[in-house]
Design a binder for these strands. Structure first.
Lengths: 131, 131
DNA sequence: CTCCGTGCAAACGATTTGCACTATG
DNA sequence: CATAGTGCAAATCGTTTGCACGGAG
C-alpha cells in the first residue's frame, strides 16, 4: 500500500461518488501534483481486484469506480451520467428464475436503472423557462 | 436506404446474433469487398437511431448490435462474451418500485444476466479431461 | 542490493471524423 | 447538378504498457 494508492482510495471514499479514473486523477493531483494518470488506473485496478472498491461498467464510455465494493445495483442519469447506488434487495427468487435460461449457468446479474437525476431535471425546467 | 445499408441490415438479421461492428464488417465484406468499417459503424448508428435495430452496451469492450429492436434484456457469457436475448416479462411493478429512487425520474432499466454459456461449459469440461 | 511501484510517453483497441469522391435522385 | 452517403486515412478517447528511474525494505 503505497502513498499514492492510499490517497487514491481515501479520495474515492471521501467523495462517496462513482468517479471515473480521470475525475479521480484531477482530485488526487491536488494532493500529489506529480502523480500520473497511469498510476491512478493501475491502483484502481489493484484495489478493485482486491475487493476494496468496485468497478462499474455502466452504459457510456468511461468506467467508474465505486467506493462500496458490496454487490449492489445502480441508477444512472442519461443526461449527466452521474451514477448512484440503489438499495433494492436482491431476492433469491430472481436468481432462481434466471437459472433456466438458454443453457447458461447463471453466475450473477446486474440491474441498471436509467433515469434523469434531480439536478438535471431542475436544469431542464430552467431551460424551458428561458426559451 | 443505400445498398450497403441494406446489406448490413440483412446480414445482421440473418445471423440472429448480437454482433460487434467489426464482426459484421467481416461478414459484409464477403458480399461487398470494398466497404469500409466506418460505413458499417455509420449505418449501424443510423439504423439503431431509427429503431430498426438495437444497440447494446454490455459489460466489456465492444458494443454489439441487436437484430431485435424491441426492449428486452440480455444474458451474456463471461467467457466468450456471446450475448443472447432473454425473455423475461417486465412487470409494471418493477418499474413502479424503481420510481422512488433518490430524486430520479426513472425512464427505464436494463437487466443484464451474467453467466457461462453452454458451449463454454462444455469447453471447460474438455479442458479438465485433458489436464 | 533488490524489487515493486512510479512517471512518462508511446502503444493500443474501439470508434469517430475530415475530406475528396461517387452515385443517386 | 445537388447532395447524401462512401472509402480512406488520420484523429480521438479511454485505457494499457514498456521502460528507466527512485524509494522502501
Amino acid at each position: 500500500m503505497t502513498n499514492q494508492r492510499e490517497i487514491i482510495l481515501q479520495e474515492l471514499q471521501k467523495k462517496k461518488q462513482h468517479l471515473t479514473a480521470d475525475e479521480l486523477y484531477d482530485i488526487v493531483k491536488k494532493a500529489m501534483p506529480r502523480i500520473s494518470l497511469a498510476t491512478v488506473y493501475r491502483n484502481l485496478e489493484i484495489l478493485s481486484e482486491a475487493g476494496v472498491i468496485g468497478k462499474l461498467e455502466i452504459s457510456g464510455r468511461q468506467k467508474r469506480f465505486d467506493y462500496d465494493p458490496e454487490e449492489h445495483d445502480h441508477i444512472y442519469c442519461v443526461v449527466c451520467h452521474r451514477v448512484d447506488n440503489l438499495d433494492i434487495e436482491r431476492t433469491d427468487d430472481d436468481t432462481k428464475n434466471m437459472a433456466s435460461v438458454a443453457g447458461y449457468t447463471v453466475t450473477g446479474y446486474r440491474l441498471e436503472i436509467v433515469g434523469i437525476c434531480d439536478a438535471c431535471q431542475k436544469k431542464e425546467v430552467e431551460k424551458e423557462k428561458n426559451s
